Simulated scan of single mutants.
Amino acid sequence: MASISIIGNGNMARGIAAVAAKAGAGIQIVGRDADKAADAASAVGGTSATMGDALTGDIVVLAVPFAAIDDLTETYKDALAGKTVVDITNPVNVDTFDGLVVPTDSSATQVIAKALPGAHVVKAFNTNFAASLVPGTVGGQPTTVLVAGDDAGAKQGVVDLVNAGGLAGVDAGSLSRARELESIGFLQMKLAASEQIAWTGGFVLAT
Rank of each mutant, 00 (worst) to 15 (best):
residue 2 A to C: 03
residue 3 S to Q: 05
residue 4 I to P: 10
residue 6 I to W: 00
residue 8 G to V: 01
residue 8 G to Y: 03
residue 13 A to P: 07
residue 16 I to Q: 08
residue 18 A to T: 15
residue 19 V to R: 07
residue 24 G to F: 00
residue 26 G to Y: 00
residue 26 G to I: 04
residue 26 G to N: 06
residue 29 I to H: 04
residue 30 V to S: 03
residue 33 D to K: 05
residue 33 D to N: 15
residue 34 A to G: 03
residue 36 K to T: 10
residue 38 A to Y: 11
residue 39 D to H: 10
residue 40 A to F: 01
residue 40 A to R: 04
residue 42 S to R: 15
residue 42 S to E: 12
residue 49 A to L: 08
residue 50 T to R: 11
residue 50 T to Y: 05
residue 55 L to T: 07
residue 57 G to L: 05
residue 60 V to P: 02
residue 60 V to Q: 04
residue 60 V to D: 01
residue 62 L to G: 03
residue 63 A to H: 01
residue 63 A to W: 01
residue 63 A to P: 05
residue 63 A to I: 01
residue 68 A to L: 10
residue 68 A to E: 13
residue 70 D to V: 11
residue 70 D to G: 11
residue 73 T to W: 01
residue 74 E to R: 10
residue 77 K to Y: 04
residue 80 L to F: 04
residue 81 A to E: 15
residue 88 I to R: 03
residue 90 N to Y: 10
residue 97 F to P: 00
residue 98 D to T: 08
residue 101 V to M: 11
residue 102 V to C: 03
residue 102 V to N: 11
residue 103 P to C: 11
residue 104 T to L: 07
residue 104 T to E: 14
residue 104 T to C: 00
residue 104 T to K: 07
residue 106 S to T: 13
residue 108 A to F: 09
residue 112 I to C: 06
residue 112 I to A: 02
residue 117 P to W: 02
residue 117 P to K: 12
residue 123 K to E: 07
residue 124 A to Y: 03
residue 125 F to H: 04
residue 125 F to C: 07
residue 132 S to Y: 05
residue 133 L to Y: 10
residue 134 V to S: 13
residue 134 V to L: 06
residue 134 V to F: 00
residue 135 P to H: 08
residue 135 P to N: 12
residue 135 P to E: 11
residue 136 G to Q: 10
residue 140 G to K: 09
residue 141 Q to L: 14
residue 144 T to C: 11
residue 146 L to Y: 02
residue 147 V to I: 15
residue 147 V to H: 06
residue 147 V to R: 07
residue 149 G to S: 10
residue 149 G to K: 09
residue 151 D to H: 13
residue 154 A to R: 01
residue 155 K to Y: 07
residue 156 Q to N: 12
residue 157 G to T: 09
residue 159 V to A: 05
residue 160 D to H: 12
residue 161 L to I: 01
residue 165 G to Y: 10
residue 170 V to L: 14
residue 170 V to H: 08
residue 172 A to R: 02
residue 175 L to H: 09
residue 177 R to D: 12
residue 178 A to Y: 02
residue 180 E to I: 03
residue 181 L to C: 03
residue 182 E to A: 05
residue 187 L to G: 03
residue 200 T to P: 03
residue 205 L to P: 04
